[in-house]
Design a protein around this nucleic acid. Structure first.
Length: 426
RNA sequence: GCCGGGGUGGGGUAAUGGUAUCCUUGGGGAUUGUGGAUCCCUUGAACCGGGUUCGAUUCCCGGUCCCGGCCCCA
C-alpha cells in the first residue's frame, strides 16, 4: 500500500542507521568546535525575508522559500545561517567581549533543482568568529574547519585559500563601472574567460588588464605564488596566515587566488574545501571573512566564518569507506516461556538503568523465534530467562557472535555485560 | 529555470494490449528451552491525470517524483 502523501521534492527521510552515522560525524565536529572555544547558538528556522535579501544576490533570493504569515509578514525559510547568527550578534551580543566564537548546526532551505549532493532541505554546520581581521582569526577559523572535516572521518579533501581583495582591487583598478566589475567577478568565479574577453572587447577595456586578471585567476600553488601579488597587504596577510596554519598542523593547503565566491559580502580571505571524489557537487565547505554586522544596523565588525555541507560530507564518507556497523542493542532479553515474560521486564529494566541498551520481547514470540530475531537485528548478547535459571536466581548470557553461553546471577547481569562489552555502551 | 535517463508489493525483479512472475522482507504456525535451516499459512504492487482501444501495467501526451548533468551553491 502506497501512502497518499509523498515526501516533498528534494527532501529526505533518515532512518536509524542513517542517523547513527550522521550523528556520529556531527558529534565529532561539534566536539572540535567546543575544543576551539566555540559556543553553540540556535536561531530560528525562519526569519524576516529581508534578513536574507539585504545581503544576498538575486540568485539566492530566487531560490528562497518565501511566504506571508497570518500577520501578513514576509517570512523566509533560512537559505543559510550566517545571516541569522550575525543578526543575533547585532541584536543581543554586540557588547560581549571579543572575540566571539559561535557555531551552529541546522537545516537550510533552497528551492533548487535536486541532484546528487543538492537538496531543497540540507544541513549545515558552521562557525563564525566575530572580532577582528587579523591573520590569527582567519587561521583559527580555517584550522577549525579542517579539523572538523578530519574529525568527521574524511581523508581525501583539498583546502584552497584565496583573498578576494586581490582580485577585487585589480578588477576595480581598470573597470570604473562597478556593475561591470561585478559582472567580471562573476565570470572570474565561473572561470568563463571567453565571455569575459567578449565583455572586455565590447566595452573597450584594456587587454592587458584582461591578461592580468586571467593570470591571477589561475594562480594556484604554495605560498611562493604570493611573491607576484601586487596587493602587498593581502600578500602579507596570507603569508602570516599560512605561517600560523603550519604551526597548527594544518598543511596541504593551497593558495588559489581564483576563488571569488559568488556572494558579494566577502571582503578578505576566502576559502573552500572540496572532496574530489564527489564529482559535480564536490564543494563540502565554503567560508571567508566579511563585515556583515553594519548591514543589520550594528557597527562594522570583522568576522570570519564558514559553513560545512553535512550532507556532502556524508556522501564523501560513503565514497571513502564502508558504513560503520550499526548495532542498536547490547542485550535482548528472551523468556523461554510465557510464565517468564513479566520477570523479563525486571531484568531488562535493571540493565537499562545501568546505561546498557537493552530490549525485551514484546511480541510474545517463541524462544526460537526470539533468538532468530535477536540475530537478525544484530544484538550482542541474548539474555535468556527460564524456569531453570529462575530457580537459581540467574540468567543465561548468550554471546550472539560466538554462541558461548554462561549462567550469571540475575543481580549481576548488568555488571557482567558491562565487563563483556569492554568500554561500555557508547 | 534548462537538459538526459528512469518509475511494477517495504527492498530487488519477470513477462505482458486481456489486472502480474520469482526472490527477499514483514506477521503467524510447525519443530514443543537455543538462532540466521526447512515446511506451511498470510499481508502487500503497476506514480498521477488524460488520450488511443472492446479492453492499458504495457502504446501516446501532460504532470509528478527519483537518479544524473548545466547554472549556482553547501
Amino acid at each position: 500500500m502506497r501512502s497518499m502523501i509523498q515526501r516533498p521534492r528534494g527532501t529526505r527521510d533518515f532512518g536509524p542507521a542513517d542517523m547513527f552515522r550522521r550523528r556520529k560525524a556531527e558529534r565529532a565536529m561539534r566536539d572540535i568546535c567546543h575544543r576551539y572555544g566555540f559556543g553553540e547558538v540556535v536561531t530560528p528556522t525562519f526569519e524576516q525575508s529581508e534578513l536574507f535579501t539585504l545581503r544576498s544576490g538575486q540568485s539566492i533570493v530566487d531560490e528562497m522559500y518565501v511566504f506571508k504569515d497570518k500577520g501578513d509578514r514576509e517570512i523566509a525559510l533560512r537559505p543559510e545561517i550566517t545571516a541569522s547568527v550575525i543578526r543575533l550578534f547585532v541584536n543581543e551580543m554586540s557588547n560581549q567581549p571579543k572575540p566571539l566564537k559561535l557555531y551552529y548546526v541546522g537545516n537550510c532551505f533552497r528551492y533548487e533543482n535536486p541532484q546528487s549532493g543538492r537538496y531543497r532541505e540540507f544541513f549545515q554546520l558552521g562557525a563564525e568568529l566575530i572580532g577582528n581581521e587579523n591573520p590569527e582569526t582567519d587561521a583559527e577559523v580555517i584550522s577549525l574547519a579542517v579539523n572538523c572535516i578530519r574529525a568527521a572521518g574524511l581523508q581525501d579533501f583539498q583546502v584552497r585559500v584565496g583573498h578576494i581583495g586581490v582580485m577585487k582591487s585589480l578588477a576595480l583598478s581598470g573597470v570604473q563601472d562597478p556593475a561591470l566589475a561585478g559582472r567580471a567577478l562573476r565570470m572570474i568565479d565561473k572561470k568563463d574567460f571567453d565571455a569575459m574577453g567578449d565583455m572586455f572587447d565590447a566595452n573597450s577595456l584594456s587587454r592587458n588588464l584582461f591578461d592580468r586578471i586571467t593570470a591571477l585567476a589561475e594562480t594556484r600553488g604554495g605560498t611562493e605564488v604570493l611573491d607576484d601579488v601586487e596587493d602587498v597587504k593581502a600578500q602579507q596577510h596570507l603569508k602570516e596566515l599560512f605561517e600560523i596554519l603550519k604551526l597548527q598542523g594544518v598543511e596541504d593547503v593551497e593558495i588559489d587566488l581564483g576563488i571569488v565566491r559568488g556572494l558579494d559580502y566577502y571582503t578578505g580571505m576566502v576559502f573552500e574545501i572540496d572532496a574530489p571524489r564527489l564529482g559535480a557537487e564536490k564543494q563540502i565547505l565554503g567560508g571567508g571573512s566579511y563585515t556583515l554586522s553594519e548591514l543589520f544596523g550594528g557597527e562594522a565588525v570583522f568576522s570570519t566564518g564558514f559553513a560545512i555541507g553535512i550532507d556532502r560530507v556524508m556522501l564523501a564518507l560513503d565514497a571513502e569507506q564502508e558504513a560503520p556497523e550499526y548495532a542498536p542493542l547490547d542485550a535482548y532479553v528472551v523468556p523461554t516461556e510465557d510464565a517468564m515474560r513479566k520477570y523479563a521486564f525486571a531484568i531488562v529494566s535493571k540493565m537499562r538503568s545501568k546505561g546498557l541498551r537493552a530490549d525485551v520481547d514484546l511480541m510474545r514470540r517463541s524462544m526460537s523465534k526470539n533468538l532468530k530475531y535477536a540475530a537478525s537485528v544484530g544484538v550482542r548478547y541474548a539474555v535468556i530467562v527460564g524456569k531453570e535459571e529462575m530457580s537459581k536466581r540467574s540468567v543465561t548470557l548468550r554471546d550472539m557472535k560466538t554462541g558461548e553461553q554462561k549462567q550469571v546471577p540475575a543481580d549481576f547481569v548488568a555488571e557482567e555485560l558491562e565487563n563483556s562489552l569492554g568500554k561500555g555502551a557508547p
